[in-house]
Each structure stands twice: as structure tokens, then as C-alpha cells.
Design a protein around this nucleic acid. Structure first.
Lengths: 117, 117, 117, 117
DNA sequence: GTGGTCTAGACCACC
DNA sequence: GTGGTCTAGACCACA
């Protein structure tokens, strides 16, 4: 796994975990590798992994069984999608639209690039 | 001026400066207020203003006359537009589109929000 | 049996054992299931059960006959009641009352919830 | 400040911060001492302080101005009271009542101790 | 100066 | 074995 230098590693790891859940690779109630194990795999300090876990647990995407490990929550995939959509609709998209208007672009420009990409 | 918490203040200030140039408020060869003065106006540390100036100077949007101050470059407005459009078309918009597709949005969703915002 | 995440499982199991003794389901000198057996029933590691037994043995609520198993002590029920009441009156209830006063609750609030719950 | 051994230091610090806000010692928009300074005062690692800050920021009780420090949120006191009351009514009090019923106490016992304490 | 992140390593409770 | 907490110390972006 190669890390982007701009965003914190623990967030990139959290994202990667979400991707695995969304893709179906990890299903509800699946156990996530331990912090030590996963850290060794990624070449990252276990504390950093724990921080990712903590971040996801706060959003109830994963949960903890003491002394056993972290597990994927029942509706993890739905939750992730919900959070991501909210973030996108409330924050990211309005910012993009505002910027497009400032730069003089029209919805047609958007559609053109959509179809091309 | 109220600052977004997520992006560095010096970048937000740089943006605001560009806006003034684009709007025609500041024309080529106009002198920009001193860092100390501008900082006082915005309630921001002068060092932060200097960082904004530095950032814009690197893009040749403004230039410095030692001991006198910073000035708007001859074709500043054109430059800004060029840089912003490039950045937007090559980097930002494709990223947004990729993300929209991942999240299951359509161009129609985009247009709906465009019209609403 | 579903476990609360906040308190250690071994304590929750110890509580459950006490409940069985208090309810009369297990009487003095009754033999308690083995850690292995009981662990299998609850879906819990036998070590965790052993820890519960150990905890109760320290309070003399159960006792051990080596090679045979754990047994309910003669006056287990009385002991439990005594320990629990002491703990509750001396430690837990005063703490709750102190907190209620801090938060601005009155005895009436308490009674209202008592009747409702 | 002397720390209870049972609960994490960072939570005890967070509690102490809340107390200061509730008592009016720290008012909205007041700046909180820096992590390094506060850590030195308490004899605690700055990272631990940061964790307390992070915890409170997640609950929007304090907020951050980059490069400057943490500040008390506008309605911090109200928020704290709200969170504490919720926690008490939803979790702590029902548990106590359930336990009292199990132990054979009545609301009158409660009131007696209330008046005595 | 501030906080944010990361590493390394330690100790602990719990399973 | 697991995670949780804490310390120490480092480097960075930002003001």
C-alpha cells in the first residue's frame, strides 16, 4: 500500500478498510486483522492502525469485542455509503459548483467531461 | 472575512486576492496593501499574509519591488484564469466525476443541485 | 447470553451466577458446571469462566474441591445479598445521588423513572 | 491533579475541562491552555492532553483555530449539560433502578439516603 | 508559538 | 493473543 503524502495515513487506511467493506471482500461480522498484524503488513505502526479503527468505530462502521478484535458492523456498507453521500452532497459538490460558476463553466461543460471521462 | 477551517488561511487569502484581481478591483501594476496593513484589516498574522504573497508570486500573479511592496503583474487576470481552469479541468473535475460515478450519482443529480444552489 | 460491552465479561458472568444462586436455582453444595462446559454454553473462552469462578471464590460465594469442581457455599445467597447491599449503599447510591444533585435532578425525577421503568 | 487509576487520564482531564466550563471559570470563546503548557502543569504527556481535546472537539464542546489553539464553543456549557443528562437518564439511572429492585430496595430507601447525604 | 501525525516501546486488562 | 492507554520524542504545516 502506497500512501499519499498529503492526507494522514490513518485516514487513508480507514478509507481502504471502507473500500474492502464496500466491495464485499469483508462482510458483516467478519473479523478485521489485528492492529499488530495489519500494521506489520502495511509497514505501519500498530498505533496508527488503532487510530484508524478508532475512527471507524466512532462512525459505528466497525465494532470491538474486547480481547478478540474488531469486527465489521451489521450494516457497515450502508452506513459508509450514507456517510460518503452526505459528505459529497453537503460539502464537496456545492464547493465544486460554486467554483465552476466562478470560472465561467456551464453544466454542459460538466456533461461533456462526464461523457468523455 | 470568515475563514474555512479546512483549508489553510494563507490559501484562502490568496484566493481572495485573485478574486479582487479578476473582478477588476485591482488592475495590473496596482500596489497591493502591505502585509502588516492587510493583516490588521483581516485580523490575521502578517506572516500569514506574507505567505499568501509568496504563494502568488511563485505563480507570477504578483511581483515584488524591494522596499516598496507587491504589485499586480501585467497579465495577472489572464494568468489566474488560465491556472485555475487548468487545475480545475485536469484535476478537480475528473476527481469529482470519478467520485460521483462511484457513489452512484448521475449528471441529472448534478444539474439538480446546480439549479438549486 | 448477551454481554454488555462496558463491563468485563467475567464480571457479568459472575453476576449471572449470583442471580442463579439468589433465585434458588442453585442451592448450597450444588455443583457448578465446569468451566469448559459452561464456556461452551455461553460461547465464551473457558479462561474467562475460570476468572469468574476465581472472583466468586475470593468472596467465598463458591468453593473448590480439587479435581471435582466448584460448589455453592453454604450461605452463598446470604453472602451475596450482604455484599451487594453494602456495595450499593456505601458506594454506588451515594455516587448516583451526588451526580443527580449536580445535574439538578430531584427525588421526584427519580420516582418518576422508577415508576415508568 | 490526582488521577483515578481506573478511568483513562484523558477522560479525567476532559471531565475536569468540562467542570471548568460549567463553573463559568472558562467562558465561550476563551482560549484553553496549549497542550504542551497544560501537560506540563498536570505532569502529563502533551499527547494525552491532545487526546482530551480531540475527545471534546468531537462533541463540539471546544473547537480549534489552527496554529492558535483550542477555544470554548459558544454553547459549550449547555452542550455539556445536555450530554451529561442524556447519559444519566438513558444509561446510569435505569441501571441503578434495576439494581435497586433486584436488591429489594424501595424508593423510600432512596429518599432516606438522599436526605441524609 | 500552536496542534497534527507518526513512531517506538512500555504496561495493563481482558479473552 | 487482543486492544487501550500512556510516554517520549520526532517532524511537519500553519499562524
Amino acid at each position: 500500500m502506497d500512501f499519499n503524502q498529503q492526507t494522514p495515513i490513518y485516514l487513508q487506511i480507514a478509507d481502504a478498510l471502507c473500500e474492502r467493506i464496500l466491495s464485499g471482500e469483508w462482510k458483516p461480522e467478519d473479523r478485521i486483522p489485528s492492529a499488530r498484524e495489519y500494521g506489520a503488513t502495511l509497514g505501519v505502526n500498530p498505533n496508527t492502525i488503532i487510530r484508524s479503527f478508532d475512527f471507524l468505530q466512532n462512525q459505528q462502521i466497525i465494532y470491538n469485542r474486547r480481547g478478540i478484535g474488531y469486527f465489521v458492523s451489521p450494516d457497515a456498507a450502508g452506513l459508509i455509503r450514507k456517510i460518503q453521500k452526505e459528505q459529497f452532497l453537503d460539502v464537496d459538490l456545492p464547493a465544486v459548483i460554486k467554483r465552476m460558476k466562478l470560472l465561467g463553466f456551464t453544466p454542459d461543460d460538466f456533461i461533456a467531461i462526464w461523457n468523455k471521462g
